[in-house]
Design a protein around this nucleic acid. Sequence first.
DNA 1: TAGATTGTTAATCGATTAACAATC
DNA 2: TAGATTGTTAATCGATTAACAATC
Lengths: 215, 215
Amino acid sequence: MDRDNKVSITVIRRLPKYYRYLGELLRKGINRVSSQELSNMTGFTASQIRQDLNNFGGFGQQGYGYNVEELHTQLGKILGLDKVYKTVIAGAGNLGQAVANYKGFEDAGFKILSLFDKNPKLIGLKIRDLEIRDVDELADFIVENEVEIGIITTPKENAQEIADIYMKSGIKGIWNFAPADLKVNEDIIIENVHLNESLFTLSYFLNNKSDYVNS
Amino acid sequence: MDRDNKVSITVIRRLPKYYRYLGELLRKGINRVSSQELSNMTGFTASQIRQDLNNFGGFGQQGYGYNVEELHTQLGKILGLDKVYKTVIAGAGNLGQAVANYKGFEDAGFKILSLFDKNPKLIGLKIRDLEIRDVDELADFIVENEVEIGIITTPKENAQEIADIYMKSGIKGIWNFAPADLKVNEDIIIENVHLNESLFTLSYFLNNKSDYVNS
DNA sequence: TAGATTGTTAATCGATTAACAATC
DNA sequence: TAGATTGTTAATCGATTAACAATC
C-alpha cells in the first residue's frame, strides 16, 4: 500500500461491496469487468468507482477494464482478508450463536475460538465445535490465545464491562452489536452494528417515502 | 412535518443516535440539554446537531437549549416510532430467533407476528409466544394480517425469493440481513444490514490504523 | 489502427463548520 | 438586565461527477 494520505471512510465502506460483486463474477468465471459494468451492479457511478480504486493503485488497464481475479485479490488484501484473525464472542445468546454459526465469517478468515457468557445454563454447551466458557475466563483466554478481535453480543448493560476486559487483554478491534457507544483507548478499532438505528431508519423512510432514494 | 425538501440520508442516520441519548437523559430525569451537551455525548458537532434538527423544525429555545422530553417525543414522531408496525421474519435460524427475541424492537413499536421457515424441523416450534410457520403460508399471512415490514434472515440464496413474496403480498418495507442486494419495486423501502461489510470495514481499519478516526 | 476504457484533473455539488444576530 | 444558546446565513471543506488525454 504505497500511499500517504487517509482514505475517507465513505470510500472504505464501499470496498466490501466491490469485493462481493467481484467474488460473484469470479465464481461465474467472468474475467474482465469495466467500471461501467461495476456501476450497473453496485449502483455507484463508474467515475466514483474509478476514483475509489485509484486511492489504492491503478488496477485497471485502458481500453480493457479490470481483471476480475486480480482486482478481487487486491481488494482482499486492502481489506485485510488475506489473513486469519482470531476472535471471541462475548454473549452467547441467540445473537452470539448466530454470529458463531455464520459460515461466511470463517470463510473470510475470521476464526471464532470460543464464546463466553455469564449464564451458568449456557456455560459448557457447544455451538458447532465451540465451547461456551465462563466470562470470568475471558481475559486469560484472550491473552493466552492472542485473540485480536472481540465481538460483543451481550445486552447493552454489560457491553462496557466486556469492552473493558477486551481493552485490558490487548484486543485490537471490537465488533459491537450492543446499542451503546463504548469508551475504549484510541488505539482500539471499534465497529458498531447498531440494529436499532438501522430499523429506525427504515421506519423513517416508511413514513417519508418521498425522501427515499433507492440506491 | 411541514417541510418541502428532502432531508439527506446522512442527517437521517444521525437521528436514531440523538433519539437514543435523549431517551437516556429522560430516564435520568434530566429535562434540558444544549446542542453542546448533545455534541459531547454523540461526537457530532453542536453546529451540526442544530442544523440537523432544524431540518424538521425549531425545537429549541434561545438561551435555554432543548427540552429533553419534547425533543425525544418529536424525534420519535419524525422517525415514525409513535406507531406500531406489524412485522414478520422469514428465516427462523439463529439470526431470525435473535431478532425475534430482542425486546428492544417490540418496545419501539415493531411487533413481530410470526416467523417463517422451510425447515420442517423448525416449523411448529415456538420462539417466546411466536409460532414458526411454513414459508408456504407466508404470502397469505401477510395479506390477512396486513403486515407492513418483512424481515429477511435467510441464507442469501433464498433472500430474493422471499423478497418476491414480500413484494407481491404488499409489504411496505424490508429489513434485509442477507448479504445480497434485493431487486424490488421502487415503492418498497429496503434497509440492509450487511454484516459482512461491517466486519470487512473493521478488518480494513485493523490493517490501516492511521486511517481510523474514532468518532 | 480504431475503439474502448482507464487514470486523473477540473468543475460541481453537497455537507460540515464557523459566526453571529435574534431572542429567551 | 446579562448571559446563554438557538436558528440561520455565509464560508469552508470534502465528496461526487464530468470530461478528456493517455494508452492499451
